[in-house]
């Protein structure tokens, strides 16, 4: 079979309708073909949309309880660190060769720990931001606005969540990188009044940006959110192009 033969099979694969031999052959092809993997992702989105055509139904409340019980059990088990006694003089039985191996392993371990520590710090920050965002959107009276990209925004997307006291958090991704001295700035717009300035933020190397903000009280009434590119220090009135904007939040 050639590439086009496999490509033709992908819609059926998204429906899990291929017979075993064809499914096996296609899976092998997918391992080496990024184009077909992308195509499968797209067909799976089409297949998933079919789920929206079914009647929604309420499972028993016990299902939710059972799931969360299992999760709590898992969390409590993972907090228990089993105690194991270490055999004494472990390396002495291997002589000097063992000691050298231990030294090499120790060095590798230190290097590994440093790498992991750096990765872990970045991940911990991201996770902490995720938690904060979840807490915000689940708080009473929380509202969420989706910001969509303008033509210059090049497909950037963002979400702003805020509560009734004005605690707000913006999470953006796919942001274009900016030249030195420039930053993204958040704006709050209510009715025909001039935009109220928010803080500035810079995207990371992956085009993601997070901003925590306290909204002005007068911005809580059906605000529109917008993001422009401005000098890093921020400006009192927008001067740059709009990269992202929302509809009014009702």
């Amino acid at each position: 079979m050639v590439h086009d033969d496999y490509k033709e099979m992908i819609p059926a694969r998204a429906l899990s309708a291929l017979d075993a031999a064809e499914a096996h052959a296609l899976n092998e092809h997918l391992e080496n073909c990024a184009e077909c993997r992308k195509e499968l992702d797209e067909w799976q989105a089409t297949a998933a949309a079919l789920a929206l055509g079914t009647n929604r139904s309420d499972p028993s409340p016990k299902v939710r309880e059972r799931i969360l019980d299992e999760v709590r059990k898992d969390l409590s088990e993972s907090n228990v660190v089993p105690f194991r006694s270490t055999p004494r003089n472990l390396w002495s039985s291997f002589g000097s060769l063992g000691a050298m191996a231990a030294a090499v392993l120790f060095t590798a371990l230190i290097v590994g720990i440093v790498v992991l520590w750096r990765q872990n710090n970045a991940m911990r920050t991201q996770m902490e931001q995720s938690r904060e965002f979840v807490q915000l959107v689940t708080s009473p009276g929380a509202r969420v606005a989706e910001l969509k990209s303008s033509a210059v925004g090049a497909g950037a997307i963002a979400t702003v969540a805020y509560d009734s006291s004005g605690h707000a958090m913006l999470v953006a991704s796919k942001l274009p990188s900016l030249p030195q001295g420039k930053a993204y700035q958040l704006w709050f717009i209510v009715g025909n009044k001039p935009p109220m300035p928010g803080k500035t933020f810079a995207p990371d190397n992956n085009g993601q940006g997070v901003l925590k903000e306290e909204m002005p009280r007068e911005a809580l009434n059906s605000p529109v959110f917008a993001v422009t590119v401005e000098p890093s220090a921020g400006v009192p009135a927008p001067t740059g192009p709009i990269y992202l904007s929302s509809s009014a939040v009702n």
Partner: peptide, 14 residues
């Protein structure tokens, strides 16, 4: 973000 929080073992997110 919810999925990221779940990956960080956030029960409330699940």
């Amino acid at each position: 973000l919810l999925l990221k929080a779940i990956a960080a073992r956030d029960e409330a997110a699940l």
